[in-house]
Structures are given as C-alpha cells and as structure tokens.
Design a protein around this nucleic acid. Structure first.
Lengths: 182, 182
DNA sequence: ATTTGATATATCATTTTGATACATAATAAC
DNA sequence: GTTATTATGTATCAAAATGATATATCAAAT
C-alpha cells in the first residue's frame, strides 16, 4: 500500500458523479464498493484536504448554521487525474483471505477445525452473494446507461466469484469429510 | 490491518514444518502463498525478533564463519499460539482489486479503455492460473498426507476463482463490445 | 578479473486500518 | 414530554503493512 495511494482515486471517482461530504464518501465505500475496496475516516479526511490543496476538488461549505458540514465537488483538473489513472493499464490486485491462511496451515489441527472454518466462510459468502444479487437486479434494468453498465459488470465479477467460492466450499467439505482423521 | 497483526501467524505456520531464515520465509510467502497473502522484509524481520522475545520461536545461529545467517524454529508455545489462531473461527477476508476500482468508475471514459483493462487483467490471471494448476498437479499425487490435502484445497480455491474470473472476462468483453459508445 | 544475480539482514517513509474522541440532529422508547 | 439511542459529521492516532532502499557476502557467468 505504501508508495502509491489509491484512496484519492476512490474519492475522485465518487465525486465525479455527485457532491459529497467525507461522511457520505465513507457510506458510499461501505456500500457496493466494499467488496473490492475499503476506506476509513483515517484516510478519507486527510486525503480530502490534500486533494483540495492540489486543486482537484473544491469545498462547498454549508451556509446554514448548526452542525459543520463540508461538501466537496470535483474540478476539471481532478477529473483529468481520474481519467489518466483509469487509462493507466497497470493495476495492483490483491486478495487477502485469512480463511485461506488458516486453511493452508490447517494440517496442524484436526480436520473438523478446517471443516468448521469453511462452514463459517460459506455462510458469510452466501449472505454477501444475496446482497450483490440484489444490487445487480436493480442495475440490469438500465444497462444502456454507461455508468450502470460499469457498475453492473463490477457487481457481476463479485457474483461470479462468490458462486465459485460456494462451489469450492461444497467440494472442500466433501474431501475433508471422506478422510478419517477427525 | 491495524490492531491485529497476522504476519506472525504466517511465520509460525511456515516454521511449524521447517527451520527457516527470514529470507527463506520471504521466499516461501512469494511462492504458493502469495496469491492469498503477502509479506515483506519490513514486517518479517521485526516480527521474528518479537516472536523470539515472546518465546514462540528460537534462533539457531549459523556456527560457521562468513555471512550472518539466522535460522528460526518454532517452540511448543509457538505451536500452541498457531493452533489457537486456526481454531478461532473469525477471519478477515478482503479483496483489493484496483482493476475493479477502475472498472467501477469506468463510465467517465470510453468503453475501449475498460475493454483494454479487462484484457490486461485476463492475461495476468491466465498466467497465474497456469502456475496454480502446476502446483495442484504435484499436490494431488499425495492427498492422503494431511498437510498436502490442506495445501491442495487452498490452491484449488485459487484455481476455481481464477476460472470464474476468466469466464467473467469473456462475458464482460462481450457486453462492452455490443454497445456503440467507443 | 569482473560483472551479475542470488542470498541475507535491516531500516524507513508512505499508506491503510481500526479505534476513538467529540459534537449535533433525528428518531424511538418510556 | 423527556430521555435514550441511533445517525450524522469532522478529526486524530497508534498499529500494521507496503515497497523501496541500504549494506554486505557468496556463487556463477562472462
């Protein structure tokens, strides 16, 4: 993660469609995006300030009294940065599954430990898959909209992956069950 | 990643089978493990010292002259820690794909940009899939060995996922190609 | 003889993470 | 109608991971 920050691109991407506060951005990330990228207040707020300093976004402070609220919108130069990043074909893709780590070293324990861990994983994936499918259902109604098409393809990636995961879970449980070392 | 370190479990897991140096550990991680977990010298070496301080591993310094070389082996208490971690059913699984991030925000650019990004992704996955298959081929010869079975299942997860990715790539390219907005 | 690449340990700035602190507004519970 | 809880909102911090770099030795190739 060091050396090349990416949360700034997430922020620019989100702001390219609508004006948002830091809190809004966090909510957006926690939605459909969270299955392939994450963010926290700890990097969102400092990055917003940094992007503003560089002129890639501008703040629109709320005029009314009461709670402070800072909405940001993207500038033309910010949109340029976003586009250049998308056009750059190099991308780092990493999967970090503690479940697989436990599985890999599972030989030091009894098989039913691994079996149970897979079941827990399976339940979580099944839930998340349901969520992804509900997102897809909404999006596939308007695939002529170019943005929707891109959202749909992204969500589809998740759905196909998760379906493969579930298939693997069944197979793995079968293979673990067959053996007698429990 | 803050608050709960995991590289220590990777190290303990690797040392549960053989005596290794920090450099060796890095090589092991860069092998079959790298598709679901990573490590760097920057966290391996400090963690080795920490694990030694806690009595979970012991160092076996090379007696001969010349280059310094510190091999470590796991202690009974270290093995206990490893097993307890495996038995704990909670696990954080996160996927961090910049390719999907670019795809998600791809609506701001022309479709052929997304199309090309998918092709680059596809090539990488195809290569990695070949590698995973070659690992699996070796492991499936001796699935009665409990360790091998666990390695095999882990690798299988990767293979099934990557096959699903490739399936998705074809579908996505087809959907992007159909439209006229290029 | 020298250059290259592998082995080996170590540190550091940058980035992310997850938690926490603080405060206001809206809603629910009693 | 008041109180408790949840949602909104900005901000900071320690812990951890990342990726690069520094330093040095040894083996193999040129």
């Amino acid at each position: 993660m060091a050396r090349e920050k990416k949360i700034d691109m997430v922020i620019l991407g989100l702001l390219s469609h609508e004006q948002l506060t830091g809190y809004d951005i966090k909510k957006r990330i926690d939605g459909a995006i969270s299955f392939f990228w994450n963010g926290s207040f700890g990097n969102i707020y400092p990055t917003l300030k940094e992007l503003e300093t560089n002129g890639f976004i501008t703040r629109k402070e709320a005029t009314s009294e009461g709670r402070e609220k800072i909405s940001y919108k993207i500038t033309p130069s910010g949109k340029k940065v976003l586009k250049n990043w998308i056009k750059d074909e190099q991308a780092s893709n990493e999967l970090k599954y503690e479940t697989l780590l436990k599985l890999f070293f599972g030989g030091v324990e009894k098989r039913d430990v691994t079996y149970h861990n897979i079941e827990v994983f399976e339940d979580k994936i099944r839930d998340d898959l349901g969520l992804l499918r509900s997102y897809a259902k909404v999006l596939e109604k308007d695939l002529d909209n170019d943005d929707h098409l891109h959202y749909y393809l992204t969500i589809s990636f998740g759905i196909e992956s998760y379906e493969a995961y579930l298939k693997w879970c069944s197979k793995a449980k079968k293979m673990l069950g067959k053996g007698e070392k429990r």
